[in-house]
Every structure is written in C-alpha cells, then in structure tokens.
Design a protein around this nucleic acid. Structure first.
Lengths: 198, 198, 198, 198
DNA sequence: TATTAAGCGAGACGGTACGTCACGTCTTAGG
DNA sequence: CCTAAGACGTGACGTACCGTCTCGCTTAATA
C-alpha cells in the first residue's frame, strides 16, 4: 500500500521547469508580484505539483535562488590577496543582478518567519561561507594572518560590505572597490598581529 | 479650491497613533502577519485614515520603523576609536531587537519594488550614514586617517559587518566584537596611509 | 438660547439647489450610483447642509421625486370618461420618464425599510390618489357609477396597469392603451351595478 | 484548454446553499442590510464562490427570489372566472410575504440598472405571465372573451392591482377583493365585445 | 458697534461592505 | 499515484460611501 514504487512516478522534468519559471517570473514582475498561479501557468504545471515538491512559496523561491547561484570553490593560489580576488570575481557576476538583489532581502525575511525556510537558508549561508573560510585558514597556516585571528570577523569584513552596497546603500561595487576592500581588511587583520591585541 | 486651510484639518493625533499601533503589532504578531485592518483597529482609526497618510502598507511600515529608531548624533571625543565606540553603542540597543532585524529586510525589499518607499528608504539611509561620515571626516582632519581615504568604503567596512550578522548570518554582535571590528578597520585604513596605495 | 431666529438663517436657495442636483444626477448616473458626495458637489454645497435638511439619502430622494412630479387637480368635465382622460394625460408626461421609472421602485423599497421615508411615502401616495378619488365620487353622485362601488378597487384598476407597465413589464403606455383601459374599467364597474353583485 | 470537463467541477451543492442562505438572511435582516459576506458565512462558502456563480449582489438576489417563487401552471376548469380564481389563489400565499414585497421593488430597480439582471428579470416576468395568458386565450377560444380583446391589457388589469396593493398602497388583498376584481375585469372585457368598440 | 449663535463649503473621521486576489488544499478525469 | 485544470474556504487588500464631526468663514439678530 505504501510502496513508493506504486503508481505513476514523479515527472523528473517538473521540478526544473518550475524553478526556471519561478526565476523567469521574478525577473519579469518582481518578487512581490510573484504568484504561485503564475509560476504554475508558466511552467505548464498544476499548483499541486509545486506544493508536492515545496512546502511554501518561500521554500520554492529559496530553491530557485539557490539554483541560480552556483557554489564557488576555494581557490589556492598561495597568496591570500589573490585567493580573495578570485573569490570575489564571480560574486560580481552572479549576485549583482537586479533579481538577486531583490530576492536576498526577501529570503532573509522569510527565513525569520518560516522555520523550514530558515533551516534551508542557514544551510545555504554556511555553504557559501565555506570557501572563503578555507582560504582564510590556509592564510593562517602560511602565516599570512595571525594565528589568533577572528576568522569569522575577517570573513564578515570582506563579504558584508559587498552585500551592504547591493542591498542597503546601492553603492558602487567594481574591481577597484574590491581591490581597496581587500587591501584594508588584509592590512588591518595583519597589523592586528603585532599591535592591536597588545 | 486647494486651499489647505479649507475643510476639517487632519487629526494630528492619528498619525502617531497609527505608527504606534503598527509598531506594537509588528512586535506581537510579526511583520508577515501584520494587516492594515489590525493596525486600524488597534489605533481606533478607519482604514481610509491610514491610506490618506501612507500610500501602502510598506510606506507605513517604513515610517513606523523610522519613528522607532532615533537618529544618532556625531560624537566628538577627539579620538576616532572612541567616537566609533560611542556611535556603535546605541546601535546595539536600537536595532538589535528581533523586530528591527525582521523589518529591515522587508524595507529593503519594499524599496526595490515601490518607488515611493524607495525614496523614503534612501533618505533614511543617508541620514543614518551622516554621523559616522562626520566622525570619519574629523579623523581625516586630525590626521588619524589618510587624506585620500575612501571614506565611503571605511564607513561600509564599519557598519556592514554588524548588519550582516543581524540580517544574514545570525552572528554574535557584542562589545568585544565591536572592539575588534574597530581595531581591524582603523588599523587597515591607517596602514593604507603608509603602505597600500604606494 | 434656543430661539430659532438666532444665528445665521438657513440659505433658502440651498434646498432647491440640492433637489435639482439630485434630480440631475439620478438622470445621469442612475439611482443606484447616486451618492451624497456627488449631490453635494453638484449643488456646490457641503454634505452637512444636506443632512441638515434631510435625514437620509432616501428622504432626499423621495423629496426630489415629489418636487419633480406636480400634483394634479381633479377635473370636472361632467363625464367620467373625460375626467379620466384628463387625469391620465399628464401622467404620461410626468412619470413616464426613465428617471421616474427607476426612482419609484427605489422609493417603495426605501419606504419598507426606513419608517420616516415610509410616512412621507404614504402621504405622497394618498395625495396622488385624491384627485382620482374625487372624480370617481362625483361619478357616483351623477349615477355614472353604482352607489355601492368599491371606489378603491376601481381606482387601483385604473392606475395600477399604467404603473405595472412602467415598472414591471416595460409594456406600451400610449393614448390608445389608456383609452381601452378606461373603456374596460368603466364598463366593468358599470355592469357591476346591474349584474355582478346579484 | 477550455474543456469544461477539465479541472475540479463546481460543487453542485454550493449554488442551492447560497440561495438558501440569501433567502434566510433577507427574511431575517431585510434586503437593505443583506451583505455578501453574511451570505457567504451563512452558506459556509467563500465569497469568491458566490461571485463565480453570480456577477453581482443583485443577480444573486434575483435568483434567490426566483427560486423561492414557484411557477404556477395554467388551470383549465372550462370557466374563465374559475381559472382566474385558481391562478390568484397561490399568488396570495407565495408573493404576499413581507420578504417578497420588499424584494420585488429592489429587483425592478436592479433590472433597470444592471443589464444582466434586466435580462433575467424579463425572462422571469415573461414566465410568470404565460399561465394567465394561456387562460385568457382559452377564454377567447370558448367565446368567453371577445376575439379582438387586447389580452395583454386584460392580463395587466387582473395582475397589476394586486401588485399595486402589495407594493404601492399597502391596500387589502383578500379573497373578496380578488372576487370583485375578477368580476369587474371580466364584465368590462366582455361588454367590450358588444358596446365599447362600436 | 460689538457679540453671538447658527449656517456655510470643505473635507477628515470611524465604520462597513464592496469585489478582487492569492494562498494552500481538494477534487475531478485521465496517464 | 502522478498529472493539469481549476473550484474551494479563508482572509487581506485598497476603494467607495455612509452619516458625523471639525475647521475657518459668513450672516443676521441681539445687546
């Protein structure tokens, strides 16, 4: 009776079609005007088919967003600054789009309200942090950063200003800014080694 | 015909009552479950009275939020680090609440969609940036920071990690973290003076 | 203190202006879409000025209607049929308009709901019945109708079909119809004298 | 795409439940105080489910009214007067209620404003006229009425006074009145045969 | 002449209902 | 058991009108 192999198997093409429709529609009408009915119609799918795969609109949007943002690998050039440059480069292309700037705040808000989305959101964030964490740990190993560095803080100092400009202040984010950002943080974290903890 | 003195003047007590009701309700039921009907009922006001003052739910929430966050003054202790400590101190109390952490992302999202909210949002952000900007400019004047510093970037380096931890990563924000944050950024920005731009 | 002569006297031109505006608007937008705001705007009058004179929208509309329909006098040509022709003639012009056909049902409905309107409505109806009643009583006096006639019923037989065609069936009402109507009712009421009550 | 068999079929029990709720509520609170929300709540139905079936409050009320008034059959006793007595008898019970007296004027008014309601209203009236029309035509066939009678007028002479007393004048409608009404109209229409058209 | 009380146009007020929309679920026929 | 289609109950939306209530200003009769 409860044999999962009984009955018609799930159509594997539905999931991707739904995600694609969701991404398209967010780009077209914005995230606030996005409706499940529209996603279903665009994907040529019934609403029940969406809800069989995602528990809520927010869960779907979170997945749509994840599917649109590829996960970067940790580079290993031997130089902290160079590693950071590599890490930041794709950021520029992937997340800077209008769509992503609008989705991110919504995701944060949804994560605070819907526990299920919150869990998925935290996993997503942890995953995104890992490559830079690896880069920073290697830098500590090489002595490029002090052994007692607060790597979480250094990470946030590198990443947060970019997100801040995207989401909060509409500030400029270009190669030059990223270069200066790296310069200041690396210098500050390094000088910490000799002076600040005194 | 359009004489603003004609007709019954708007009840000056309604606006604050509505804002207060909105803030209360956000605290009680969360921002997602907030309804205009509930705000009107709580404020003892008709819905039309709200829409006469705010064009949308988001515009109301933005104002409610602004009214709940006081504007800080620029301190002038003669020391950059001390000025920053003073600036960060109240941040901790005002914005760290659950309510604010949930409202901020919503506001950002709303600002991207609703142009009217966007305008008010940008004003709010500009106003919030000004005190720290003043502090940083005084530091440049005293020679505590290089004359060619990118003050916008320094500002973002100081502010963004706090917001990031509140909104994105649920990271710790306490006096110790703020102390280390100030240390790294000031050190980085200062070392910039002698080394990085060379 | 309560001397009605104290204070600014009512502007005598307001009442007629309001009634005129109401009649105009009913003709333009229909009775269902009529609003007090529109009447006030059209009459160049504040809403309070209307409510100072009429207790409700329905009361106003009843008066507007009464003011648009003049009260007929009882003719006295010496012939029942001729008297009736005279009585019906203006009916055709006054009440047959689209406006009146739409207002009458509303008035009836309002009279069933609002007691104050009901009272005014009953007075209006009684007043409208009086001339024909007089004509019929004179006919009885002349022996044109049996002495034991049910004059209320004869009245209703004469008047009701006209209203019925206006309000219920959208039937034809022209001189020819009225002529035949009078012929049948007078003949029926007269024959009643010699045969029916036997 | 527009296959009516696709999708969940409409719940056949909703329509009658809504009509029943509407009729109940009209009886309880009157037609003016009837709200769609109340009908929906009473029927245990969403408002959208009502609007999926009726385009407006008036259209719903017209149907509710039609469903509450059964359609009479044309009797065939061989006598015109007896046929008319039979036709009038149920009238007394069905339409004389407070509810119907209040609904009818509203329906007339709605029919003048809303074209869709107007169409349904005219169908309803035509259907209600048919039995008496049949009775009158049979009377002509038997020679009980002149061959050149204006049957529409005779019909209106029989029906209109009853409606008039219900709706306009609050006059008495009992068996005695109906008897006299029939007597006068039949006598008048018959005498027409020999005298009036001369 | 100054006071005063009510009427005036304008329009904001607390309510209430409107008709629409989206949510997430449920119910068909068919694959 | 899945699928597309679409109806379902729920509940918020933003609008429109109701009849009432201020405003600042006339407009006479009273003092």
């Amino acid at each position: 009776m409860n044999d999962p192999r009984r009955g018609r198997p799930r159509d594997e093409s539905c999931g991707p079609a739904i995600l694609a429709a969701a991404i398209e529609l967010v780009g077209e009408v914005g995230i606030a005007a996005l409706t499940m009915d529209a996603v279903a119609a665009r994907a040529g799918v019934g609403k029940a088919t969406i809800y069989r795969r995602w528990s809520s609109k927010e869960a779907l949007m979170l997945d749509a967003w994840k599917s649109a943002v590829q996960k970067p690998d940790a580079p290993d050039t031997g130089s902290l600054r160079e590693d950071l440059r590599v890490l930041f480069a794709p950021h520029d292309q992937q997340l800077s789009g209008e769509t992503m700037q609008r989705i991110f705040p919504q995701m944060i808000a949804a994560a605070k309200v819907n526990p299920e989305v919150g869990e998925a959101y935290r996993e997503f964030i942890a995953e995104r942090r890992r490559p830079m964490r690896t880069v920073l740990e290697r830098a500590v190993g090489r002595g490029d950063l002090p052994a007692d560095s607060d790597l979480d803080l250094v990470h946030d100092l590198l990443v947060a200003p970019i997100l801040y400009r995207w989401m909060v202040s509409d500030g400029v984010v270009d190669d030059d800014v990223i270069e200066r950002l790296i310069a200041i943080v690396v210098a500050g974290a390094t000088s910490n080694l000799t002076t600040a903890r005194r």
